[in-house]
Design a protein around this nucleic acid. Structure first.
Length: 543
RNA sequence: GGCCCCUUGGUCAAGCGGUUAAGACAUCGCCCUUUCACGGCGGAGACAUGGGUUCGAUUCCCGUAGGGGUCACCA
């Protein structure tokens, strides 16, 4: 009885690794092309970090004429959540970071290196596990959870490293005959990797982002096949990224500690290891310290949050790109019209430690993104958002022709208006332009001029003697100056400032009265345009 | 606790032995044909700390402190 018998006993019916090596030939790609991936596990709602990872991978793949694929890592059946993979894929589609290859929504594969879902690759993993078993690089382990606890206890007592390694292992050196007998006897077991590592030796690894890192060699005999026959992350990673031809692994930096293990796995399996780029997580301030953006605690961690708030996907993407490469915003300023895919992204420029996620900055990016939209685009997006989240706004927007005029005020100029950061802002910004939403009897808060009789005087005089809806802007403005003068206010702000005691106020104070009377608000876009859009009939109703 | 990584203004960050230590967001002031938004100009605001190495350290080395990650039949 030898390792071969043992391997055959454990995995009698697998296709064998040679079959898979032939089935998945090396990808034919141009020089320098990177094969990138995003490998989420379907364990909950879609995290903004997933979009971040996908954006980076997709951008780099595109930039090098490579491939971006998504592999669903669903080897932990206990944690799996119904429909999560569908939602992940859907989000990637929503954010324009959909992969070139992946499992389709209907379960078929799009690409030649599938299945792109790990639970469908059981035979593949087992074929390689069998190979390792035959070579003596893996072994069945019969230790129970209690045995493992015991080992840990002893290690803690002895103040030694915890884990299943070296002299602490019970099954590593079990004679083959005994293992075979136990298996035949029906004893439960899992398969462990027989690590060749020596922790007294160091390995040095060059991470694309983190640079050179040195660690002790791995000597942990980690489990590679669990009792349900599925692989652990580490084993699946080595097999999949080898077979799928990944050239550059981008993943969260919680994985750097596993590098010695992963490199060892690739080596023992006879695979060429990919390059690694470990990205720092998006962080959140809590008290005096930082922590990862958390699904549980932070609403902004969920991609659904941005949809609900009405933050355009382009803004989310640009903000994320800015976190990834901070020179992006400089580029964006110089190239306001270009697609962000024209930006030359560089992994090496990524920060090594986690950045605090800054919603204020995100909204600023969003303002800029929206300011580049045409009235038509603003209308379409706001409408789509309102359909789902705000019936009142939807009602207003139903009048398309009029709404386009409203949204077009001060839009498309050299210095476009930047007052909308998210679609949920729109209603508050434009409601007074809609007759049914405006209530003239409400108590408005006037500013400098707040005496009721003075206000009435201004309004009466203006609309009786000055206002003419056919005036052009300059005429209109001059008339307000004339009005101001007639009532004892300065025609020019400068005049007033030069000699404040000579006047009751200035033209700005007067126009503010008109503005508030007509809109109910002191902060509005250009009053002339507002009056034009509103029209004489509606204006007369408001005074 | 072991191992690994990180530390420039409130935040994101340039910088890679000699700089008046960029820029963006936020903040404050002024300006712009009247508010707000935009834009322009300006202000305040930083190299965690102690030792080295060096003619010279934000930059290189060591220690300290603080922060983060990781030590599962989870990924």
């Amino acid at each position: 009885m030898d390792n071969k018998d043992l391997a055959n006993l454990i995995f009698p019916n697998v296709k064998g690794y040679k079959y898979y090596e032939e089935k998945y030939p090396k990808r034919e790609l141009p020089e320098g092309a990177q094969v990138m991936r995003y490998a989420p596990s379907p364990t909950g709602f879609v995290h903004i970090g997933g979009i971040y990872q996908s954006l980076i991978a997709k951008k780099l793949a595109k930039q090098t004429n490579g491939v971006f694929y998504v592999r669903i890592e669903d080897t932990d059946q206990k944690r799996e959540i119904e429909n999560a993979s569908i939602q992940i894929l859907q989000s990637l589609k929503d954010y324009d970071v959909y992969p070139d290859e992946t499992i389709n929504l209907d379960g078929t594969d799009n690409g030649n290196y599938g299945p792109y879902m790990q639970s469908k690759r059981k035979d593949i993993y087992q074929s390689y596990a069998k190979k390792l078993l035959e070579e003596g690089n893996a072994y069945p382990c019969f230790c129970s959870a209690e045995d493992l606890d015991k080992i840990r206890e002893n290690q803690e007592k002895a103040k030694e490293r915890t884990g299943y390694y070296g002299r602490w292992t019970k099954c590593r050196n079990m004679p083959v005959d005994m293992a075979i007998e136990k298996i035949k006897n029906g004893d439960p077991y899992i398969i462990r990797f027989k690590s060749p590592g020596n922790p007294d030796k160091k390995i040095r690894h060059k991470d694309v982002i983190k640079g050179s890192i040195e660690f002790p060699e791995n000597d942990q005999d980690i489990v590679i096949i669990k009792s349900d026959g599925l692989p652990t992350y580490h084993f699946a990673h080595a097999i999949d990224d080898h077979l799928m031809g990944t050239t550059l692994v981008t993943r969260g930096d919680e994985w750097v500690a596993s590098i010695p293990l992963h490199l060892q796995l690739f080596y023992v399996l006879g695979f060429k290891a990919p390059k690694y780029a470990h990205t720092a997580a998006l962080m959140k301030q809590e008290g005096g310290s930082k922590r990862k953006l958390s699904k549980r605690k932070d609403p902004e961690a969920a991609v659904s949050y941005y949809k609900e708030e009405g933050i355009p996907k382009q803004a989310v993407l640009e903000y994320l790109m800015n976190i990834a490469n901070s020179n992006f915003e400089i580029w964006r300023k110089q190239n306001p019209e270009k697609s962000m895919y024209d930006f030359d992204f560089d992994l090496k420029k990524m920060g090594v430690s986690g950045a605090l996620f800054d919603m204020v900055k995100m909204l600023d990016v969003s303002k800029n993104v929206i300011s580049r939209y045409s009235a038509e685009e603003v209308y379409e997006e706001a409408y789509k958002w309102a359909e789902e989240y705000d019936t009142e706004l939807l009602e207003m927007l139903k009048n398309k022709e009029y709404s386009l005029k409203v949204l077009g005020i001060e839009r498309g100029n050299v210095k476009p208006r930047k007052d909308i950061a998210k679609w949920s802002d729109v209603k508050d910004i434009i409601y007074y332009m809609y007759p049914e939403k405006f209530n003239k009897n409400e108590e408005f808060e006037y500013q400098k001029i707040n005496d009721k009789s003075e206000i009435e005087k201004i309004i009466k005089l203006y609309f009786e003697n000055y206002y003419n809806e056919n005036d052009d802007k300059q005429t209109w403005f001059n008339k307000i100056k004339d009005l101001s003068e007639e009532l004892g206010y300065a025609r020019e702000v400068k005049e007033y400032k030069a000699n404040p005691d000579a006047y009751k106020g200035h033209v700005g104070d007067v126009s503010t009265v008109i503005r508030i009377k007509i809109t109910g608000k002191s902060n509005t876009p250009d009053l002339y345009e507002i009056l034009q859009v509103l029209g004489k009939d509606e204006i007369m109703k408001r005074i």
